[in-house]
Design a protein around this nucleic acid. Structure first.
Lengths: 143, 143
DNA sequence: GCTGAAAGCTCTATAAG
DNA sequence: CTTATAGAGCTTTCAGC
């Protein structure tokens, strides 16, 4: 991966609908070369996905919270992982170092759904030992 | 925004290079209709950005950490915000409720750069009062 | 690995119903 | 919203460096 690849990635990051010929006009390289470089970046897994960033408020996701979670035992891990991955409310889930086991980033339309998520999904269904929730008041930056 | 818009958004989320005619073959609506719907979704700000998800490891970002940050006083806020937004290492920055003021998500190539970021950028330059760092060991889900 | 040109195809924009 | 059309623009391929 050379400097030209980095430039291409940067352009696609700012607008993934750019075509090879768009990019060709900016960096001086022929269209077929750029098309092939993009294909290779995808194939090598450097580009994971072409996607869109959506406006959460517009999508009715008015609350975004982080929830630290500690599980009882590793016996619960399987169900926990499966449920979390499938839940449409969970934006991210990381296994973390420190006091807790996992950190979830969760988007919800209202507080009653948050209550439901913590009480039913986490505590009851997933047998989470303890959790710690804090709210995102505003976001300065989110890539 | 109706159900068709939601379907279009879902498809673009899974692959933002889909064209109107690609989408037209899946949901039964003419190409001009879909093209116009996408334009409106962009104009309304429901679609914030067309972008790519990159593989962090492949980009040399071997460590991703969360850092909670507490500022001394609101006098430091301006510089803090400006610096954070410009820093290429900072993936996200949220103003949060709870014990700390901000939560940063930071990607770095190695531990010495992490040390540098905490010691120099945060503590020295930005006069951060205290911080609390924890590591992401692995990621189950990240939209 | 890159360039340039040609072929064919696909997309977008527009107009009319 | 649909269909139809025209024109612009894209991707791919291939020969040659």
């Amino acid at each position: 991966m050379d400097n030209i690849d980095l430039q291409i990635l940067q352009m696609l990051k700012s607008n993934s609908r750019m075509t090879s010929s768009d990019i060709s006009k900016i960096i001086h390289l022929s269209v077929p070369s750029i098309a092939e470089r993009i294909r290779k970046l995808e194939k090598k897994g450097i580009i994971n996905q072409f996607t869109v960033k959506l406006n959460r408020k517009a999508m009715g996701q008015n609350y975004v919270v982080y929830i630290f979670v500690q599980l009882h035992s590793s016996a619960e891990t399987q169900l926990f992982r499966k449920t979390i991955i499938q839940s449409p409310h969970v934006l991210e889930c990381h296994h973390t170092s420190g006091e807790y086991d996992y950190l979830l980033k969760v988007a919800l339309p209202d507080l009653s759904e948050l209550e439901d998520f913590i009480t039913n999904t986490l505590k009851t269904n997933l047998k989470v030992m303890r959790s710690n929730t804090f709210f995102i008041l505003s976001t300065l930056k989110e890539e």
